[in-house]
Design a protein around this nucleic acid. Structure first.
Length: 275
DNA sequence: ATAAGGCCCTGACCGC
DNA sequence: TGCGGTCAGGGCCTTA
């Protein structure tokens, strides 16, 4: 599932493909994909616009247009936003098509239909609830500790809360807690200052490494939750220590990795290394 | 205010 | 082979 490293990879790889390209046509085949303005108004609003700059906030892609408008894309679970040749045929899961002035077409493909696209003048309201960027200076150990103070929910659940830190999802929450040596079910408010600092450091470390490897691609050939804009896989899945490694030996101590459910999400950890 | 559970969606997978 | 049930989970919503 696309989390911060996967979205960052999208932004970096889309920029050279789309910068300067204009949208000549637009079709919406699943109305709920368009969060703003609405499916009916979207084509007229996007046609004629030209891609100018590419950014990211948490798991949101921010495609700035020359007009000053922003096309915001959230891939959620299975969304893919890919630039394809003119001859590429959309399938039944292709919900939005953007025809470009060079003949290619952007395909928004989303099997589960959880993904959303906004076309707005001001992206701030869409992003208003997000916590700090984990790779930025604003994500401090002290700030994280303040947000965890008094909280009784499991640290795993709190790391998935985008208001606490933006961009961490199920994969990188599990991997970061492993690197930090903290058990996922520990209440957030019970963590020591040192443990919070270790978690912050681990989040930054795992996200940076995953960006280097262009994200994590999971699943078989037919159920691929994340593929890069050109259709290639990422490379970080081979470095997962615990995520979907249930029963496999912990790379550090050899204890079998355990799977449990926290906040209705699959959670994987080493019961020996994480406490 | 926080915590917990439901909902949206489809396809893979499992047991019978 | 077919079929029903379960699981996957990000963000938002409701409920307590």
């Amino acid at each position: 599932m696309p989390e911060l490293p996967e979205v960052e990879t999208y932004v970096r790889e889309l920029a050279p493909e789309l910068t300067g390209r204009a949208v000549n046509s637009a079709q919406v085949h699943w109305a709920r994909t368009i969060a703003a303005p609405d499916a009916e108004a979207f084509p007229d609003a996007i046609v004629g616009q030209r891609f100018a700059a590419f950014g990211r906030r948490g798991k949101y892609m921010l495609l700035t247009l020359e007009s000053g408008d922003t096309l915001i894309v959230h891939l959620r679970m299975t969304g893919k936003f890919q630039v394809k040749p003119a001859a590429a045929v959309p399938d039944k899961h292709t919900h939005v098509l953007l025809g470009l002035d060079d003949g290619r077409t952007v395909h928004f493909h989303d099997t589960r239909k959880f993904g959303r696209i906004w076309l707005v003048g001001d992206p701030a309201p869409v992003l208003a609830r997000l916590g700090p960027e984990p790779l930025g200076d604003a994500f401090s150990a002290q700030g994280l500790a303040e947000k965890l103070a008094g909280r009784k929910a499991a640290i795993k659940a709190l790391l998935l809360d985008q208001r606490i830190v933006a961009g961490v999802g199920n994969i990188y929450a599990d991997e970061a807690l492993f690197l930090a040596g903290v058990a996922p079910q520990r209440p957030g408010g019970d963590l020591s200052e040192a443990e919070v600092a270790q978690i912050r450091h681990a989040i930054r470390q795992v996200l940076a490494r995953a960006i280097e490897l262009r994200g994590s691609s999971l699943g078989g050939s037919s159920l691929q939750n994340y593929l890069r804009p050109g259709g290639e896989q990422g490379g970080f899945q081979t470095e997962h220590n615990v995520f979907r490694q249930t029963g496999n030996p912990c790379p550090v101590c050899g204890t079998p990795v355990v799977r449990t459910i926290i906040a209705q999400r699959s959670t994987h950890y080493c019961p020996n290394c994480q406490s």
